[in-house]
């Protein structure tokens, strides 16, 4: 469906390497996530795939069409939701939707079944101007507009950035239902916790892909056992952990600190707890945990 082969993109006459030899494939009907922080190259990749930018190197195709030569055809077949809210703020919800439907040579009625579930949530506000909607509703409207011509491939560039947790959850539920209708979805996000909601993900940093697989496989490939530890004084604990010889890496992670050991020994946990107690830590708690995608990302970044 979507393939990239050694795709590169530079800006400022080569001074900035935004995308560096990226290759991956997205299968038909897959929900594929591009996970990485701002500036990792996600938007550039999306813009090349949606024919808005020409790659400096490599080849890419969407639905078997080359992104450079087949741009006219691709534009008919894909849906795209850019990172910034890209609808007309001074048009109403209804006017925006009708406009985009006509733009793609279709009508709202024709594809209403596809957007119905999402649209009913914003329908009570259909005469309101888009600029006056809340973040979550804007995003739903933008998704409706991107879907209105029944695209076969949907590109969503950071659809959940700046959106609160509740709206984010709703949004991912909608994506799952769209996927069930057979639409191939490429989504990018800086939120690592959203990675597990995708079927396959690519972790990207500095224009390079660090890992591509299913979230489960990426977690499984975490090289060493991961432990979580907490005490009554978390900031001191982190400093002390960094000073411990047997600890390979340690970093804050929510209410715990996560750490790995240099060597995989059975007595690791107990000896560390003893050492920490000697340093005056109380209420110590330690357990082995399953890594999250964020743990994997941190681990991959340290290479």
């Amino acid at each position: 469906m979507v393939t990239l082969q050694n795709i590169s993109k530079t800006y400022n006459k080569g001074a900035i390497k935004a995308v560096d030899q990226v290759s991956f494939k997205v299968k038909k009907g897959e929900l594929f996530g591009l996970i990485g922080p701002d500036g990792a190259g996600k938007t550039s990749i999306f813009r090349m795939l949606t024919t808005l930018l020409i790659p400096d190197g490599g080849v890419a195709s969407v639905n078997g069409l080359d992104v450079v030569t087949g741009y006219k055809e691709i534009r008919k077949q894909v849906g795209y939701m850019p990172g910034k809210f890209s609808l007309y703020q001074d048009l109403t919800v209804e006017e925006n939707l009708n406009f985009f439907a006509t733009l793609f040579n279709t009508t709202v009625q024709e594809n209403y079944d596809l957007i119905k579930e999402i649209y009913v949530q914003i329908e009570p506000f259909k005469t309101r101007r888009a600029g006056k909607l809340s973040g979550g509703m804007k995003q739903k409207l933008a998704l409706c507009c991107a879907l209105i011509h029944r695209p076969t491939v949907l590109f969503l560039d950071e659809p959940t950035t700046g959106v609160d947790t509740v709206s984010r959850k709703e949004f991912w539920d909608m994506l799952k239902r769209l996927k069930d209708q057979g639409i191939t979805i490429l989504v990018s996000t800086p939120y690592m916790d959203e990675a597990t909601l995708c079927e396959r993900i690519a972790l990207i940093q500095g224009g390079k892909i660090m890992s591509i697989d299913t979230p489960e496989a990426i977690i499984k490939s975490y090289p060493s056992p991961l432990f979580a530890v907490k005490s009554s004084k978390m900031s001191v604990l982190l400093e002390d952990l960094r000073k411990q010889d047997q600890v390979k890496s340690s970093f804050a992670f929510g209410e715990f600190h996560h750490l790995t050991f240099k060597e995989n020994l059975p007595e690791n946990q107990q000896s560390l707890l003893n050492d920490l107690e000697k340093l005056g830590h109380t209420c110590l708690e330690m357990k082995e945990i399953t890594p999250t995608i964020e743990d994997c990302f941190i681990q991959l970044m340290s290479h």
Binding site: P37, T161, P190, Q205, S235, F251, F297, I298
Partner: peptide, 21 residues
């Protein structure tokens, strides 16, 4: 820390702790 990578995000919090101390 919106949109910042996980490693730098933690470094940022180190700065916050340091200021808080």
């Amino acid at each position: 820390t919106g949109g910042v990578d996980p490693v730098t995000r933690r470094q940022f919090w180190d700065l916050i702790y340091e200021a808080s101390n």
